Simulated scan of single mutants.
Amino acid sequence: MSDIAKTPQPPYYAVIFTSERTEGDHGYAETADEMVELASIQPGFLGVESAREGVGITVSYWDSLEAIQNWKQNERHLIAQRKGMSEWYLRYKTRVCRVERDYGFEAESKN
């Protein structure tokens, strides 16, 4: 996933998931894609950005703490969380933040 999420004006919330993987895929890529698809249809979901080179960082954006909690308790997500702890991750850290301000830059297309 390489797009920058198009988020609304703050405030909103960000869940930052930083991880270090075990060796091998063991179904990880397929489940990660499934989790993004599933999260994207959850009420309150605003977008996601992800990168992995050694350490993986996925940031998902939500409109409320309640939406984050509901996603955390989603049955399919709970299964993936358990598999993450038993097979996919050496370690991970989750941080939940309130976004108070954002800004950016986008170059104009030179067509």
Rank of each mutant, 00 (worst) to 15 (best):
residue 3 D to Y: 06
residue 4 I to K: 15
residue 4 I to Y: 14
residue 6 K to A: 07
residue 9 Q to D: 15
residue 10 P to T: 10
residue 11 P to I: 01
residue 12 Y to G: 09
residue 12 Y to N: 05
residue 13 Y to L: 06
residue 17 F to A: 01
residue 20 E to K: 11
residue 20 E to W: 01
residue 21 R to A: 00
residue 23 E to A: 14
residue 23 E to V: 08
residue 29 A to W: 07
residue 30 E to M: 03
residue 30 E to Q: 14
residue 31 T to H: 07
residue 32 A to T: 09
residue 33 D to A: 11
residue 33 D to M: 06
residue 33 D to L: 04
residue 34 E to C: 00
residue 34 E to Y: 12
residue 37 E to K: 06
residue 37 E to L: 04
residue 38 L to A: 08
residue 40 S to T: 11
residue 40 S to C: 13
residue 40 S to L: 11
residue 43 P to E: 13
residue 45 F to L: 08
residue 46 L to I: 12
residue 47 G to P: 04
residue 47 G to I: 05
residue 49 E to L: 10
residue 49 E to K: 06
residue 50 S to P: 07
residue 51 A to L: 11
residue 53 E to M: 10
residue 55 V to H: 06
residue 55 V to F: 07
residue 58 T to G: 02
residue 59 V to P: 01
residue 63 D to Q: 09
residue 63 D to H: 03
residue 65 L to A: 06
residue 67 A to L: 03
residue 67 A to F: 09
residue 68 I to T: 07
residue 68 I to F: 04
residue 70 N to H: 02
residue 71 W to D: 00
residue 71 W to K: 07
residue 72 K to Q: 15
residue 74 N to W: 15
residue 76 R to H: 13
residue 76 R to P: 02
residue 78 L to F: 00
residue 79 I to P: 02
residue 81 Q to L: 12
residue 82 R to F: 03
residue 82 R to Q: 14
residue 82 R to W: 04
residue 84 G to P: 07
residue 84 G to K: 08
residue 86 S to Y: 02
residue 87 E to A: 01
residue 88 W to N: 04
residue 88 W to D: 03
residue 90 L to S: 08
residue 90 L to R: 14
residue 92 Y to Q: 01
residue 92 Y to L: 05
residue 93 K to S: 06
residue 94 T to C: 06
residue 95 R to F: 00
residue 98 R to S: 12
residue 98 R to V: 12
residue 99 V to I: 15
residue 101 R to K: 13
residue 101 R to A: 09
residue 101 R to I: 13
residue 102 D to K: 14
residue 107 A to T: 01
residue 109 S to K: 10
residue 110 K to R: 08
residue 111 N to I: 06
residue 111 N to T: 08
